[in-house]
Amino acid sequence: MPIEIPKDKWTGSIRAVTIGATSAEGGTRAKSITVGGQTSMPYLHYEAPMPNKPVIAIEIKSRKPDDWSPLLADAWGEAMADPAQWAKKAEEAGADLIVVALTLADSPEDAVRVIKSVLSGTGLPLIVWGPGQAEKDNELLVPISEATKGEKIVLGICEDKNYRTIVATAMANGHLVQARTPMDVNLSKQLNILISDMGMSKDRILMDPTTGALGYGIEYGYSVMERLRLAALQGDAMTQLPMIVTPGFEAWKTKESKVGEGVPEGWGDWKARAINWETLTAIALVESGADVVVLRHPESVKRVKSAIEELVAV
């Protein structure tokens, strides 16, 4: 029997957002990256073609982290002590973007120096995260923003209690912002509204709906992302932004990834399980509509990248 395939007719679409600027575009990046632009739910090519595929960012730190899993330290080795080296290695590992996470120990001068060195170490576009404390974030991000004017860096992380300064400096220096809210559709929308009320173009916002790792609340993030994407396709302008998610950060916080000894036997081999934890967290989020996936382990990067290739294949 001939079956008519039901197709959703959406009225809305996701904005295409470009990160990074080449010299022709006013920056120094080897290439820029565009995400978003979808007009259907993820990978349903029979409904609509997918103009841009999800990309992978690898997270590096401005200083060698002392609390990361030894599995990650094994994978990156000495490069972890030098952000520029680390970024280069990340690029080789298949990253489309580099996330540089600053720490509380960084001074504004340190931070600017690190970012400049990373910019020279890799041609990939950057995302820069403050250490996550409002005053310190502003203190570090403003000079970075000014020192890298025109690079179209993504500055983060804006939250509802601290977004004004970051947005203002991003606007003044031609950057983008990452807008994070804690796993709630309404809060995501609200922050996007607050940021665009300041006059920020919606083509320069990545929304970060936050997600838990596998076993640690991933289902909330998963459904929030599906709902945001559905709302966007239904025409809600305030949700029509590409989504950035941080499964690497979330998964490597968990005991399942971090700890190799004294855990239940049923968890199996440590390294394989840890990488599965990050990879499966990432895949669930890719299935629910992630556009930028921030990872930590090169093996996960390889696996997720290959899965994305399969998913975008028509």
Binding site: N186, L187, M238
Partner: peptide
Amino acid sequence: YEAFTSALFLPHTDM
């Protein structure tokens, strides 16, 4: 709870 968070905005999340 959903309706509450969407109303926890001025005047409302859905303008």
